[in-house]
Simulated assay, not measured.
Amino acid sequence: MILLLAGTAEARNLAGYMKDAGIDCIASLAGATRTPIDLGVPTRVGGFGGADGFTAFLEAEHITAVIDATHPFADKITARTADICKARGLPYLRFERAQWISRTGDAWHRADTYADLERLIPKGARVFVATGRQSLAHYDTLQDRHLMCRVIDTPTAPFPYANGEWIVGRPPFSEADERKTFEALKPDWLVVKNAGGAGGKTKLAAARALGIQVAMMTRPDAPDGIERREQICDALEWAEQF
């Protein structure tokens, strides 16, 4: 039985291919979204309860290998999972999409940390935040900019800063959708994590077309010495071994 740590489009696609190939798989979702898309395979939702809970789950479900297809910025989950699998001698694969690369017409500015945003983004700017609600705690130094944070589910709590607002929307978004959103909200800057993938790329195309500046958060480094795949066919081939 393979454990697939999911939550990305790549994980959803891989789950479908594994099901079609007859590979026993159980998926796990963190539960951050209220109504997640059905993965088509047995799926558990919610945290494991730390390292001990995760180890207990591996034993109880007789997991023979783990594929970590969580978000490229879920570095804490990846590091913990890789360490536990290594300690148990359990095969582990990190499956993540390739990073985005800028092209002619892009106005990207590298941001290695959230602290870089204060330096990059001028005061008074209108900022479209596409890094998720959990990241907002890092934006306290930007309270003299107008922040617009896009979320999937309608928040029950007010926006954490006086100078901002929630923007509710459920992906996927086409380039036309993103252009319409940006034309209505008129952001000067877009803050985005370099997560890669076709789905999120549409907002970058819209920003390019409209001349919006982009603060591109660099991807955290993966743990040393782990197996990695970027193509679904390669990840499926790896899974077929177990």
Score class of each variant (00 low, 15 high):
L5N: 10
G7Y: 04
A9H: 08
A11M: 08
R12P: 02
R12S: 14
G16V: 03
D20M: 05
C25G: 12
C25W: 10
A27D: 07
A27G: 04
L29K: 01
A32F: 11
T35M: 10
G40C: 08
V41S: 07
P42H: 08
V45Y: 07
A51T: 10
G53T: 06
G53P: 01
F54P: 10
F54G: 10
T55V: 12
I63K: 02
D68H: 02
P72T: 01
F73Y: 13
A74H: 01
T78S: 12
I84W: 10
K86E: 15
G89K: 10
L93Q: 08
R94H: 05
R97E: 03
S102D: 13
R103C: 10
R103F: 04
D106L: 11
D116R: 05
E118T: 06
P122W: 02
G124K: 00
R133F: 00
R133L: 08
R133S: 15
Q134R: 14
H138L: 02
R145G: 04
R145H: 05
H146R: 14
L147F: 07
V151W: 00
I152T: 13
I152H: 00
I152F: 01
P155E: 11
P158I: 05
P158N: 03
F159C: 07
G169E: 09
R170T: 08
F173A: 09
R179D: 09
K180A: 15
E183D: 09
A184C: 08
L185D: 08
D188E: 13
W189T: 15
V191E: 09
N194F: 08
G196T: 12
G199F: 06
G200L: 05
A206P: 02
M216H: 11
M216T: 12
M217W: 09
D224H: 12
E227I: 03
R228Y: 02
R229Y: 03
I232P: 09
D234K: 13
A235E: 08
L236N: 04
W238G: 06
F242Q: 06
